[in-house]
Design a protein around this nucleic acid. Sequence first.
RNA 1: GCCCCUGUAGCUCAAUGGAUAGAGCAUCUCCCUUCUAAGGAGGAGAUGAGGGUUCGAUUCCCCCCAGGGGCACCA
Length: 541
Amino acid sequence: MNLKDQIVSSLEKASKVKNPNLEFASHEEFGDYTTNVALRNATSAKDLVAKLQKDKDLTKIVEKIEVAGPGFINFHLKKEALLTELAKVLKEKEDYGRSYEGKGKVVVIDYSAPNIAKRFSIGHLRSTIIGQALYNLHKFTGYKVIGDNHLGDWGTQFGVLIYMVEKNKVDPTKLTVEEWEKLYVDFHTKLDSDPSLKEEARHAFKRLEEADPAAKAIWQAAYDTSLKEYQRLYDLLKVKIDYAYGESFYEPMLDTIIKEVQSKKIAKESQGAQIIEFKDLPPAMLVKSDGATTYLTRDLAAIKYRIKTWNPDLFIYEVGADQILHFKQVFATSRLLGWIKDQKMVHVAHGLVRFKEGKMSTRRGKTVKLEEVLKEAVEKAKEFNSDPKISELVGIGAIKYFDLIHEPQSEIIFDWSKIFVLEGKSGPYLQYTYARTQSVLSKAKANNLKKETPSLNQEELSTLRLLTRFPEVISISTKTYSPNILAEYLFTLAQKYNAFYNKHKIIEGDNQDFRLALTIGVGHVLKNGLNLLGIQAPQKM
RNA sequence: GCCCCUGUAGCUCAAUGGAUAGAGCAUCUCCCUUCUAAGGAGGAGAUGAGGGUUCGAUUCCCCCCAGGGGCACCA
């Protein structure tokens, strides 16, 4: 149990309030933790403090409990409790903060999901990076985690490609992803002057769904080429996703799904199509008027498959905010079908990456290729360090951290001049601080945290206090699907450590053992935290 | 038109209904004969407008303004 939970549990007993709220003190003079449970429940803060002071478990870790301001109760942790916690960090190393909150639970995370035959754009980075961080966090808190890359490899977009390949008489096996995307863009340009082309694309997709061999061969060529390119990018990003079933995988199951929806009288015919109506949502389309399926059908099939295969307690979809309505409809339909009862379904809807002038659009060829961004970032990082391994890890770390420091829902305005952040609140700042801890340690002799309590200065104490909050940061970051909370915490920790580093010499004097122990602890937490965010921490830079 | 999200410093972002609204960039002043200056210390600078609920509102409610997203055959 972490320090915060220990106080909460004592507070619960004394106040008889369930889940009494306890937060970080906003200023160090207010101690370490603050509760307003007395204010909220109009009980006497004084009486509550009196009860708390008799709690031996609590007084073991807390040295002072006081009423302050309009009735807050502030807890000041004992220095010994903080030092015990530091010893724990040293003992558990990179397992410090690991918990069993998710023990016995299964979570499926649907993330990344690029569209086949389109370049992997900067827009897909968010889903990939945030999704991967959520994956790591859930694993670290004890869940059984399954990651699935729901590739956009089915749908009318392939009708477009089949039509264009046949019309232009090109060899599909020779096309690059770039060229596939160009076909797609060209089609939409032509569509503006000739709307009847839409029918051609739909017809071609229908052929694909009916397993026409020529259509299938074109699809396969696009799939193979795209996957190869995506793999290269995932390698570069150091992202591994357990499965990549993709929409096409569910194709054989769609008939069964449609029949089940119909037999449960959830679908309704409208203008030749099959639709689903809801009480408080606009209707969704299950089958088009020409009999072709939609992505709703395929998302439903994916849910059914995931339940059958893993029986998850929690479904997380890390997909853009433009899909909010779609997922509301998907979740509502799976409830109507009776598939989803107690399981939790969450759409972590990240804000879109857009240009100042407007939305990115593949159809109009207005996207930014991720690979270019990554290459540019690595080039920038080379200005500091010419070692290719380090500049790669720093450049990519910078891009990832930039993405993760924003809360998922916030929009990101893409700006070449702002995306490569190598100083200040940035990935490289954290990597640098980690490398700095390692550098100090490499110059020091072996050390042990001594038994006697050293007297701590302001900077040491602030760093130590923050360090011990790591476990609760992990917990809240996971529970709220917000890797940005962890990203923010790591920055603040690095800041505190750097302030300490600049003011005091570490390898010197009486407190050397403590300072080295603190350095080791900060190193563990920084490295571990960065890794959870999917960012590598170098020994040197 | 209807639904959802967002509006915080010059710019980019934080702040489970709490105390003195935190950072980064940019700007101004300092700190490398000292363990990594991709660093540190300090200055200046902000809640779109108006109501309401509350002991207390950036946060909740109402209205207005501004931006973004979505609303049946793209996903």
